[in-house]
Simulated scan of single mutants.
Amino acid sequence: MTAIKESSTIQENKQFAFNQCPVTYIMQRIGGHWKPIILFHLLTGSKRYNELKRAIPTITEKMLIQHLKQLENDNLVVRVAKPVVPPYVTYSLSESGERLRPVLHAMANWAIEDAEVNAGNIYADKRMSNFPE
């Protein structure tokens, strides 16, 4: 991967937006397709890699590994490796990740309500009572 030139105009613009807008801040941390989905699945508690892979069958191994590392680097996920053979690694939400719980619930609620209005009742069996507290 090529190095990012820190003094580029694009990087300066990103940094300006990052400093001025809280939405930019959160999108930098949890933006993209997979990160919110991974975080949502961790709301129910710690999971092993294979549990996450089974819960999100359409994610590739590369993407899951990459995003788990990024979430760990951003202090949203905690990785715990137990020194046993075979290796036993779990992922769970950090304290900062736990504070995203209401955000993720709000996103799920919005999806349910918006889908009912725009796409029919595709989430009829999905209610917040079915989502992890």
Rank of each mutant, 00 (worst) to 15 (best):
G120E: 12
G32A: 09
C21P: 01
I65Y: 05
M27K: 06
Y91P: 05
Q20R: 14
V80E: 09
E12K: 14
L64N: 04
R79A: 03
D114S: 08
Y25D: 09
N75F: 12
A17M: 09
I38Q: 01
T58I: 11
S92A: 15
S96R: 15
F18M: 15
E61R: 10
T44C: 05
E95R: 07
P102R: 02
S46C: 06
K53H: 01
Q11S: 13
S129L: 11
I10Q: 13
Q15I: 10
F16A: 14
M27L: 15
N109Y: 06
K53E: 01
S129W: 02
I37P: 00
N130T: 14
E116S: 14
W110L: 12
R29K: 15
N19Y: 04
G45I: 09
I26P: 02
L42H: 00
K82F: 08
A81Y: 00
I56P: 01
R101I: 04
Q66D: 13
Q11N: 13
I122K: 13
F40D: 08
L39P: 03
E116W: 06
E12M: 11
I26E: 11
K5N: 15
N130W: 03
L104K: 09
Q11A: 14
V103P: 02
N130Y: 06
K62R: 13
G97P: 07
Q20E: 15
L42I: 01
P87N: 08
A111R: 08
L76W: 07
V117Q: 13
I30G: 00
N130Q: 12
C21H: 12
L71C: 11
E61M: 04
H67M: 10
G97E: 05
I112L: 07
V85S: 14
A3T: 05
A108L: 11
E72Q: 13
L42Q: 00
P36N: 04
L68W: 03
A108Q: 07
R101K: 14
P132V: 04
V103M: 08
K69W: 04
